[in-house]
Write a protein that binds this DNA or RNA. Structure first.
Length: 647
DNA sequence: AGGACGGCACTTTTT
DNA sequence: GTGCCGTCCT
């Protein structure tokens, strides 16, 4: 056994401070809450705890490590591997959704799930819902019902917050109160459709896992048995970013540790920024009430940022009524650099300032990859992107559409899914061809079948759509012929055709062609089309654009959580952007925006630039963010105001 | 008249 | 980039 106090020569304990060691060496089998401020070495502490558990004899496959993003999971697994070697490979780590997928494929048969189920992304989910509406002969517009997008949000909110649909609607969409009955009917058909198709959306994953983690008394005996086996498997459960868990995730975590397993939850109520996804800080704040023997540990020493940056962060977050007191204490010494607030004339000048300054920083020895530009919403990044391109600066964008959600990637994947009999995918494929519209598609779908390799589909079509349908049938048949060669070869065959027929139409066809090559490479890891598609929506998509040399990072604030850079720019500190206008009407809305601001500024290690434009595109005057002005009352502001200077 | 297609709003944040 | 609507072509 390793002594808790004396770790001077121990590689697991030597690099840690007292607070961190207390977490790493805390006894097994208990519940505990760790409050960890930004930059406090939280990831390192978690990784070392995992290593410590393994060293004391807990097998890796009996440790469950829940993180918030796939990226975080990947990083933690890599660091565990560094510390523990290959024995860390069998660690069970990932996001709630990714882990739910793994667990349900392995343990879901008790729930009647086919282990080959496919996971729906948001677009797939909306397709299913739209189809459910059509099944019922409803017309959303005519019948005064919410749009498909909104219906999805209603069902999702109800699952994530564990509120019944009526309460959910009354709370957030009271204008649809009188339609509750109809919306419930749609929901029932929606659920039925997904079950018939053997597919699960993001919420179904959580519901499935929760049924195993915490089965209702009325569940079949087989479910209770599986539940027991599942919970006995994991002797230690660790949950990162716990403040961002919603009701159902909180219940899953609680119950995975309900039979004497250890549960370590790590979080920071000041960094809760997923309220829109139903995240409920009560999970964290009320943790000790739910587990009355739970001890509470603190990580408050900040190793990341200068005292000036931390002081700004502490002063800002003090404007929130946070329940848990926790001041960040700087470990670093001052570099003599105040946070800058840069007042620009317009968006264009703002972009020019950021890019010019970034360039100077790089020239002075800061690598591109140590500079980040953060913003509240993706659209705010366009001016900077244009300016970066103009000045030929390498950059990566970590916001906006995901790789697998781009039109050309979705097109190509749709061909693959069409060969497996997916009607939604076939529809998308056929609509690509000139002369083929919704009506000829409807006819074609009635005659289409994978078995005759779509031959009938085109044969009876008349007139203008025939040529397109024939082409589609040919290429789909070609793909089916190559089934034995594996999905990568099938996609390579298809991409030849697709590139000639369609990619040339895009004005950035080169980039898109490269993406398709990337996709073919990605598919090499899979033996069948089915496997390729099964987990696509929950796999890590951040490996994209990762390895083409050092690059400046553009990121939404949400995506930046957990990361750090030497120099950070935060764009558009104006009312309506940060805080975002949509937050004004929401309960806790502006407080959540302030936490977002807090997350953004605590990403910066050495130097922070907060920029804003006095005028928007069409000359409209913009008001500086309240997150700046509220810091200027009475006291000396914790930042220095400047105007851009171009040297 | 049926069907394709170009032009129009709308897009906060993410698994 | 998608969904919806009006217009134009067959």
């Amino acid at each position: 056994m390793i002594d808790r106090q004396d770790g001077a020569n121990d590689p697991l304990l030597a690099p840690l401070n007292e607070q961190q060691r207390a977490v790493v060496c805390a006894p097994q089998g208990l519940a505990r809450l760790v409050l960890a401020g930004p930059g406090s070495g939280k990831t390192r502490t978690l990784v070392h705890r995992v290593a410590q558990l393994m060293r004391t004899g807990v097998p890796a496959e009996r440790i469950l490590l829940v993180t918030f993003t796939n990226k975080a999971a990947r990083e933690m697994m890599a660091r565990c591997e560094q510390l523990c070697g290959s024995s860390a490979w069998s660690l069970m780590g990932g996001t709630f959704h990714g882990l739910a997928a793994k667990i349900l494929r392995q343990y879901g048969s008790a729930l009647g799930l086919d282990p080959e189920f496919r996971i729906l992304d948001r677009a797939d989910t909306e397709d299913q819902l739209r189809a459910a509406v059509n099944d019922l002969g409803l017309d959303l517009r005519r019948d005064g019902l919410p749009r498909v997008r909104t219906l999805c949000r209603m069902f999702s909110a109800s699952v994530q917050r564990e509120l019944d649909l009526g309460a959910t609607i009354d709370l957030r969409w009271p204008q649809y109160h009188h339609h509750l009955g109809l919306i419930q009917t749609i929901g029932a058909r929606f659920v039925e459709r997904k079950q018939e198709a053997g597919v699960l959306d993001f919420d179904d994953l959580l519901v499935g896992w929760s049924l195993l983690a915490d089965p209702p008394a009325s569940a079949e005996p087989a479910v209770h048995q599986t539940s027991q086996a599942l919970r006995e498997r994991f002797v230690e459960v660790l949950v990162d970013e716990y403040q961002d868990t919603n009701a159902i995730q909180g219940r899953i975590a609680d119950h995975m540790a309900s039979i004497g397993n250890g549960l370590t939850v790590v979080g920071d109520d000041c960094q809760g920024i997923y309220g829109f996804r139903g995240a409920d800080a009560q999970n964290l704040v009320g943790f000790q009430q739910r587990f009355d023997a739970a001890e509470r540990l603190l990580l408050t020493a900040n190793y990341r940022s200068t005292p000036e940056i931390l002081s700004l962060a502490n002063l800002s977050i003090a404007h929130n009524r946070t329940q848990l007191e926790k001041m960040l204490e700087p470990e670093r010494t001052s570099l003599g650099l105040p946070p800058w607030v840069v007042q620009c004339k317009d968006r264009e000048e703002e972009a020019r300032f950021v890019v010019t300054r970034a360039r100077e920083l790089q020239a002075s020895g800061i690598p591109w990859s140590e500079i980040a530009v953060l913003y509240r919403s993706h659209a705010l990044s366009t001016e900077v992107q244009v300016e970066l391109a103009k000045q030929s600066i390498p950059f990566v964008v970590r916001s906006g559409v995901r790789f697998f959600e781009q039109a050309h990637v979705k097109d190509v994947l749709a061909f693959g899914r069409a060969t497996m009999g997916d009607e939604f995918a076939l529809r998308r494929v056929l609509l690509l061809y000139p002369g083929v519209g919704p009506v000829s598609v409807r006819g074609a779908l009635e005659r289409a079948s994978v078995d005759d390799r779509f031959g009938q589909m085109a044969k009876t079509a008349s007139g203008i759509s025939r040529r397109g349908l024939e082409q589609a049938a040919d290429v789909l048949a070609g793909m089916i012929e190559r089934s034995a060669d594996g999905p990568s070869a099938q996609l390579a065959f298809l991409v030849d055709h697709y590139r000639q027929a369609f990619v040339q139409r895009f004005d950035d066809s080169n980039q898109r062609s490269e993406d398709l090559e990337e996709l073919i490479r990605f598919a090499q890891g899979f033996e069948t089309m089915n496997q390729l598609f099964a987990d696509l929506p929950v796999v890590d998509q951040t490996t994209r654009n990762g390895d083409s040399g050092p690059a400046l990072v553009l990121s939404s604030i949400h995506q930046s959580k957990g990361l750090e850079w030497k120099r950070v720019f935060v764009l558009s500190l104006v009312e309506g952007h940060l805080p975002h206008a949509a937050s004004f009407a929401e309960v806790d809305g502006v407080d959540e925006e302030r936490r977002l601001f807090y997350v953004a500024i605590t990403r910066a290690a050495d130097e922070l630039y907060l920029t804003y434009a006095q005028r928007a595109g069409h000359g409209r005057v913009q008001t500086p963010s309240r997150f700046l002005s509220e810091l200027m009352v009475d006291t000396e502001p914790p930042f220095t105001m400047v105007r851009p200077s171009f040297s």
